[in-house]
Design a protein around this nucleic acid. Structure first.
Lengths: 223, 223
DNA sequence: AGCTACTGGATACCTTCAGTATCCAGTTAC
DNA sequence: GTAACTGGATACTGAAGGTATCCAGTAGCT
């Protein structure tokens, strides 16, 4: 199909398609002539994936490109998952300011905590993993706000995270029947589960708050 | 302290402090004269919170304002949590395009799924909750990518979410000794746990991937 | 009283991001 | 032959998140 048709079927403006192509998110169509290219079903799929990654996953164009590149170079589900995991943006920025003394002491404390956690969970981590870095930074930030986790709390959360990860991986394993878009599915599981999980947590929080407000009093009937 | 001192202690440029004040994130200092205001420790704290919310929590200025407004108007931990929960941005945007037929069928399917999930979890939800809307939209999007959850999977995730929410609420309850910044702590728990949890999940995923590549045995040992 | 440093407030400006729109010259299907 | 369409380049837009500048009014020191 021509680019205009691709635009029509996906609902993405032609200009945007060109933009994504320019940004390396979307492969160019098969050129049938100097000024004409043929697009296929894979482009439709890719466009959908891009849309999902950016809107649902909240990825920037640059992050999406990295993820998609990882997808294209992956030769197995695992390698795709690994690459994607590293390509996904970590939601923590280092805060370069603040008093240096406090920084130093809380900084090393956060590091030690993360190290202890990884040991407690029996995780084998390179230490250079961006996730380790990110977690350390996040804990540092929380410490600075005097809202850090008490000993054990973090482990409890980590146990939940482990369960979630098992579900994720199991889920990824069920996609084995379609090897073509296998890596894509892996991406989806990794990148797009996060918002779903977060939403679920919010829902659960909302329910918990409601219940605890009600307190010992009898359950308020639904209207 | 004067605004310049506030700037020095927090590391936030004066212009930015003014900006936050203008945006309603930071209360004005107590005016000691027409062109002079006194800032206190609460401003330092607030500035830290703003920074954490925007960098760690990834909130926009507008979202942060909403959250902070909720904090200021809260009279109990629960009301703060409730307000904050709704003020936090939901990471899903409706995709208004696509073929209408498929849209209709998957759309209602997603709705039914969410409804069933809420029933299965015994959650009492208004249905108008933005989280319900968001989850529905997210599932719709995943369906469109042919990566939707199989029956039961979602429930498993929801159970994890429930556990996490319990931990969250328990955590929030331990802050009762400092009623001044109580609402702030609640915000932190709700808004800033998300990145930590997500990071933990990534860590766990990374570990899982490593184990499954190495062992070929998808069954990790229990400790 | 005079001088300088600092202030709140208003406004203008800058950079990045994610698209959109325009222009162009080369096909191509009719 | 011509109207429709193309890839490619470039320009533009609008929002977001700050920064920087300008201003006249003090405060505090001398």
């Amino acid at each position: 199909m021509k680019i205009s048709e691709l635009s029509r079927t996906t609902g993405v403006p032609v200009a945007s398609i060109k933009y994504f192509r320019r940004q390396g998110l979307l492969p160019a169509g098969k050129a049938t002539a100097a000024t004409l290219a043929e697009y296929g079903q894979e482009h439709v799929q890719r466009l959908r994936l891009i849309k999902a990654l950016t809107t649902l996953g909240g990825l920037s164009i640059a992050a999406a490109r990295e993820v998609l590149t990882a997808v294209d170079q992956a030769h197995s589900t695992e390698s795709a998952l690994g690459a994607v995991s590293y390509a996904l943006p970590v939601p923590v920025a280092e805060s370069p300011v603040g008093d240096a003394d406090r920084e130093a002491e809380t900084g090393s404390a956060a590091e030690a905590e993360v190290e202890a956690l990884i040991a407690a969970m029996d995780w084998q981590m390179p230490g250079t993993s961006p996730h380790v870095q990110g977690l350390t930074a996040a804990l540092r930030e929380l410490k600075r706000l005097d809202a850090d986790y008490r000993p054990g709390e973090l482990v409890a959360y980590a146990e939940l995270a482990r369960s979630a990860a098992r579900l994720d991986l199991d889920r990824a394993a069920t996609f084995d029947d379609d090897p073509v878009s296998l890596a894509e599915q892996a991406v989806i599981v990794f990148a797009l589960s996060a918002p779903v999980l977060e939403l679920l947590r919010r829902l659960a929080q909302e329910d918990q708050v409601r219940r605890r407000i009600a307190g010992g009093k009898p359950e308020p009937d639904t209207e």
